[in-house]
Design a binder for these strands. Structure first.
Length: 448
RNA sequence: GCGAGAGUAGCUCAGUUGGUUAGAGCGUCCGGUUGUGGUCCGGAAGGUCGAGGGUUCAAAACCCUUCUCUCGCCCCA
């Protein structure tokens, strides 16, 4: 059907099985590295009181001003929407930190999250209205070593999934909120009388978000900026010292980075350290992950003054990079055994056999219909089964079954009751199989 | 949100200056004698040519509108 009755809403997409293998692989690296570093998993609601985003991220940021999905219900559809789908994790996690009194926990509190976020932007490659992020936050303690260690975890994750060498870590320090306010004023003052020399777009930015002028792609703007005051003149000594120490620690950890004095991030809550993992080969949507400090955010939400630093990575963009790099993801979806059957008696017996194989941890498919043996063999081949077990009328009578090695193309008849142990042996023994027991399993972290 | 390009079977694409029942490859399903896959051969299913409207004797092709995707900008994951 070229025109299905329904399709995914604009900017959303199905995560099909193949992409899920990539997603699962990435999430595994995230969980593993996070756990090693003491992070614990948290999930916050997909929608929150919209004021959380307005106040936290900033009313005049694009994310809030034009990309928020508002949520209403049937009962309240006449009222103005009170809720919004989360466009990112940090604001909700900080809300949760306060709500659950996490300042009582040993500090710092390290949290991570994986899930969907929503922004109503015009879709493009690597930019969707519903997308997946993984997110890490360290709240409650401030020290350059915390910044460096957070970045280290991310570098490790990107290393694990083999895309680190495609990325460049850019880092900057934008000072305290006061530093930033003072600098913003200075920039505005500098451009008084020069507005007309600015491209239209940047004239607007001068009003709404002057810091954004720094990384403008407009040539005229960049020329004017050469004589503009530089940000580091407005940083207090403490911020400069902090930044220097962070960089020293990164050096010590052998993390490659580029100092980028024009790196300013669009969200209002950022202070001090900001950083991004950029991909310089693609033109746009090139931030694979980014983050920074938000030392004033918890206080802004009514909590005790509490420092924090966090990061978000985009799963879809990471998947894209892995594919570009030709990375194939190992997965457990291999079909070990296909059971082919002929005749009603054999089919009945096969159901039990299939069930038992599965319980032993053997990935088993079969008894799917009334197809001819030829069709069943073809299916076994299509599903890429390693072995086929064949049970026909003759075998049922003789108490045997045929075991075929698909790659070798060889088969032999064995006693029926030897089928399961033989298959297990061929697959490398019990330890290689996909078994689990609820009772003995560690309650670890969610597999999602 | 602004600007540009694209939209033909599940996928990748043909379709000559508008002219008979819209094609190929791959994929899917079924066969190629009695119970066997991967190669080969045959057959079938699958498309109101993204949707709506208009021009015309005639439109997948031309015009308008709309939807979706892609690219650039903005922004960001």
């Amino acid at each position: 059907m070229s025109q299905p009755l329904f399709r995914t809403p604009k900017g959303t997409h199905d995560v099909l099985p193949e992409d899920h293998q990539y997603m699962t692989y990435i999430k595994k690296a995230v969980r593993h590295r996070a756990r090693q570093a003491g992070y614990k998993r948290i999930d916050t609601p997909m929608f929150e009181n919209k004021a959380i985003f307005e106040r936290g991220i900033g009313e005049h940021t694009d994310i809030v001003e034009k990309e928020l999905f508002l949520v209403t219900s049937k009962q309240k559809e006449d009222e103005e929407a009170k809720f919004a789908l989360r466009p990112e994790f940090t604001a909700g996690i900080c809300r949760s930190f306060i709500e659950h009194g996490m300042q009582q926990l040993p500090q710092p509190v390290e949290l991570y999250a994986i899930g969907q976020c929503f922004r109503h932007d015009r879709p493009q490659k690597g930019r969707y209205r519903q997308f997946h992020q993984f997110n890490m936050e360290v709240i409650g303690l401030k020290d350059p070593s915390i910044d460096a260690q957070l970045i280290l975890v991310l570098a490790k994750i990107f290393g694990d999934i083999k895309i680190l060498d495609r990325l460049e870590l850019n880092i900057n320090n934008i000072g305290t909120a006061e530093n930033r306010a003072a600098y913003t004023e200075a920039l505005k003052d500098f451009f008084i009388g020069k507005e007309r020399n600015l491209p239209e777009l940047d004239q607007a930015r001068l009003q709404t978000n002057p810091l954004r002028l720094l990384d403008s792609k407009e040539e005229d703007t960049q020329i004017l900026l050469k004589n503009a005051p530089a940000m580091d003149q407005f940083l207090d000594d403490e911020s400069k010292e902090y930044h220097k120490t962070v960089l020293e620690y990164l050096d010590e950890l052998d993390i490659k980075y580029v100092e980028n004095p024009t790196l300013v991030r669009g969200l209002d809550y950022y202070t001090q350290t900001v950083f991004e993992f950029l991909d310089n080969e693609t033109g746009s949507q090139n931030a694979v992950g980014g983050g920074g400090r938000y030392d004033g955010l918890i206080e802004l939400f009514g909590g005790q003054p509490t420092p924090g630093i966090g990061f978000a990575g985009g799963l879809e963009r990471i998947v894209w990079h892995m594919k570009q790099a030709g990375i194939k993801v190992p997965h457990k979806d291999q079909v070990d055994v296909f059971v082919a059957q002929l005749g009603p008696e054999a089919k009945k017996t096969c159901l039990k056999l299939i069930s038992e194989l599965r319980d032993k941890g053997v990935h088993t498919l079969g008894a799917l219909g009334e197809a001819s043996l030829k069709s069943q063999m073809r299916l076994a081949d299509k599903f890429d089964a390693r072995y086929t077990l064949l049970l026909g009328k003759m075998e049922v009578k003789g108490g045997t079954i045929i075991l075929k090695d698909m790659a070798a193309g060889k088969q032999k008849e064995i006693p029926f009751e030897e089928a399961i142990p033989k298959v297990i042996e061929l697959l490398g023994g019990k330890d290689k199989l996909d078994t689990y027991t609820m009772r003995d399993q560690f309650v670890d972290v969610d597999e999602d």
